[in-house]
């Protein structure tokens, strides 16, 4: 599935972490590192994407992801258009392809796409004009590659090398695009061990084929890990007979201070947000010294700047053409 790379092996689209060469993943992290300085300056802009147009195409509601993409694009000096399709357009009967054609006619350079259907970003990437890049901001249960990369960035900042790390992902892996992308990213970057911890109802079939060790018992799963990633538990999971109750889930899989004591003493706790306190994680852990949850949000901007600039780099900007 590497229709996301250009002829030189650089990023053209960013649809999934799966199959991405390690060197490229490391380059995303390195580029993000160089942008983190920009974010901390008083003038938070670089002119890399001046004259470029980025369209945020969100078919599902999102606050955090959309705003960090918007900030990232603006800090690269791009023009940004937000289109919230959770409320308009395709609901008027316009087909997805027709809508893409119309937006392309506005001379945009990049679509940032969030969609409820797995594979939607691939579909859009296959149908856009060759000069347009597509960045997947979450498609169904499939992938959320920039979220995974900002998580990797956060892990690297706190832990350094991936090789010795044991990472546990806890919770609803079945429905999680974030978890799938994290698993590919961790394995792609050479993490020592990737564990998934959940009841069987929240694990996809053959999840070990993604390169994970499966644990159903959280005490065994958290033993000696360096990183604990908790996932959000959606309330609707109770209706599909996947779980009996939030209370029982918390009893069996909630991340508490007591359970964190099983992990290494310097372990960090992560969560892609938004948090359900008292369902998947205890407040004392979420707000405690091991939590890096807010760092994840900040790092999201630098990582998204890196991905957007890498997708559009090497192509002559309109400014250069005029010079």
């Amino acid at each position: 599935m590497n229709d996301q790379l250009n002829a030189e092996g650089g990023l053209h689209h960013f649809l999934t972490v799966e199959g991405m060469p390690r060197e490229l993943l490391e380059r995303i992290l390195g580029t993000a590192e160089s942008f983190s300085g920009v974010i901390e300056k008083s003038v938070k802009k670089v002119p890399l994407l001046r004259g470029r147009t980025v369209i945020n195409l969100f078919f599902e509601p999102s606050t955090r992801t959309r705003t960090t993409f918007e900030l990232a694009a603006k800090r690269l000096s791009a023009d940004v258009l937000n289109i919230n399709l959770a409320t308009s357009a395709t609901s008027k009967g316009e087909s997805l392809l027709d809508m893409l054609r119309n937006l392309e006619a506005m001379q945009c350079d990049m679509f940032v796409v969030r969609h409820a259907d797995s594979g939607a970003a691939h579909f859009i990437a296959r149908h856009v004009a060759p000069h347009v890049s597509v960045v997947n901001a979450g498609d169904g249960r499939h992938a959320h590659p920039t979220q995974a990369m900002l998580d990797m960035y956060t892990i690297r900042r706190h832990k350094g090398d991936f090789e010795p790390l044991r990472v546990a992902i806890v919770g609803d892996i079945l429905h999680s695009r974030v978890a799938r992308s994290q698993i590919h990213a961790l394995n792609g970057l050479g993490a020592g061990e990737v564990r998934v911890i959940a009841p069987r109802t929240l694990l996809p079939k053959d999840v070990d084929s993604l390169g994970t060790h499966v644990y159903h018992d959280i005490r065994r799963g958290l033993k000696d890990v360096d990183v604990v990633i908790t996932l959000r538990l959606q309330k609707e999971r109770m209706q599909g007979a996947l779980l009996p109750s939030e209370q029982e889930y918390y009893q069996l899989y909630g991340i508490s201070q007591e359970r964190m004591a099983l992990a290494r003493s310097d372990a960090i706790v992560m969560h892609p947000g938004p948090i359900n306190r008292g369902v998947e994680i205890e407040s004392a852990v979420a707000d405690g010294p091991q939590s890096v949850i807010l760092n994840q949000v900040t790092n999201g901007i630098a990582v998204r700047m890196a991905v957007m600039s890498m997708c559009l780099e090497g192509r002559a900007t309109p400014v250069e053409e005029n010079a």
Binding site: E18, S118, G119, D139, G140, R141, H142, A143, R177, R180, P204, K205, D206, V207, S209, L210
Partner: peptide
């Protein structure tokens, strides 16, 4: 089909 490909693609599977 429910299997390793559906798991990779994030598609619900039919066992």
């Amino acid at each position: 089909h429910e299997g390793w490909v559906s798991t990779r693609l994030g598609l619900a599977g039919i066992p």
